[in-house]
Structure formats: C-alpha cells, structure tokens
Amino acid sequence: MKKLSEFLIPFAGLKLGKHPFEFQIDKTFFESFSFDEFESASILVKLVLEKKSNFLELSFKHQGTVYVPCDLTAEYFDLPIKGKMKMVVQFGETYNDDNEELLILPHGEHQLDVSQLIYEMIVLSVPARKEHPGIKDGSLKSAALDKLNELKVKEIKPPSGENETETDPRWDKLKQLLKDK
C-alpha cells in the first residue's frame, strides 16, 4: 500500500478545538490497497478532528454507494452504505494500533495518515450478504432468474393409481384411539 498524500493530516500546526475534513472516495482509493471487490465507489467521508492538549479525537462518518455484484444473481447494483467510527489518538513511545478505538503515535509525530482507518471503516460497513433490491420487490429482470422460473416445479401430481382419500385401515384404528379419549 502506498501512502496517499491527501489523507495525511498535519495536526501539529492546528489550534486546539474542532477541525472538519472531507474526503471523496472512489475506486482508485481501493486500488491503492489492492482491494478489487467494488466495480466502482462514490463515498463521502466526513472527519472531525478535535485537538486537545495531549490527545486527538477523531469522529468519522461516511455515506455513499458501492457498485457490487448480487450474491444471489450476480447482477451488479449500487449498494448504499453508511457508517461512523470514533477513535482517540494518544502519544507514546512506539506506534500501536492494536486497539480499535485507540491509536498510539510516537512522540514527535506531526501528521496522521487516516487512509487505513477510512479503508477499514468502509470495507467493514459493507454487509456480508449483498442482495439486489429488485429481488425483494420482484422488479429484477435477469437471465438467471428467468431460467430459474422456467425450471421451477409448477405442481406436484400424485402418482397415477393412488387415491388421496383412501388411507391405510391400520392408521384409521390408531386415529380412532385418539378420538375415544
């Protein structure tokens, strides 16, 4: 993964308080992470960095769409996604990102790369099962669905020679026991 310069935030020169940032995410962002599960993407990420005297608070929000294949029909569609994430950045001896809500940067750092955080937030907001909205409302027209409807069993017919009204007399005796109670 290469460093993306537009996602480097130089926090050293910022005053104490809140500072808003916006990022427009598209397919090239995911290509830099060698992630190719989205055909295209259009996501707006809003970040509010609150600088305090000895730590930083990051509040991320994202909303947009990713163009993905349906898991049932393989038809591509725009999947709406949204999410939010909060993170605290503190300063210590060494870099540590083991905790998902706490990031420790070494003393002397003057900028923060938020590209990895944005990438993880977006990828984790995509549901495990991606289902085309046309499946639920019946408006999806695809070759796969047409073929499935063509091969669908229309009606189950009993084998010829059997009459549904006739039952085994042994079962009739057992049913009589239940009625006698």
Rank of each mutant, 00 (worst) to 15 (best):
F7E: 09
K52V: 08
E39D: 12
F30M: 07
S59D: 00
K61S: 06
K15Q: 15
E6Y: 04
K157H: 13
E109C: 04
I81Y: 02
M1N: 13
R170G: 00
G64D: 11
I122E: 08
I81H: 02
F77V: 10
V68E: 10
D137F: 11
D172Q: 05
E57M: 15
K27C: 05
M87G: 00
F21V: 10
E31D: 11
G134N: 02
A12V: 15
E22A: 12
F21C: 07
D168V: 06
I81A: 05
K141C: 03
D98T: 12
V45A: 12
F33K: 07
D78L: 00
V126H: 09
L177K: 14
D168M: 07
L105Q: 15
E93L: 15
N99K: 04
F60D: 04
F21T: 10
V48R: 15
E131N: 06
A144M: 08
K147F: 15
E162M: 11
I118C: 08
D172K: 00
E120G: 04
Y76A: 08
S142K: 09
K179L: 01
L58N: 04
L56F: 09
F60A: 03
I43R: 04
E37Y: 00
S32P: 01
F55V: 11
G13C: 09
E93A: 15
T94A: 10
L177V: 03
A74F: 12
F7N: 07
C70K: 08
P158I: 05
L103S: 01
L151N: 00
K179H: 02
K51I: 04
P127Y: 02
T167Q: 09
K2T: 12
L145Q: 02
D172C: 00
L47I: 10
F11C: 07
V68P: 06
R170M: 00
I156R: 01
N163V: 11
G17W: 08
V153S: 10
A128Y: 06
M1H: 12
G64Q: 13
N96D: 14
R170P: 01
E93V: 15
S32T: 11
E109P: 00
L105K: 10
S32G: 06
S160V: 14
I9M: 13
W171H: 08
N163S: 13
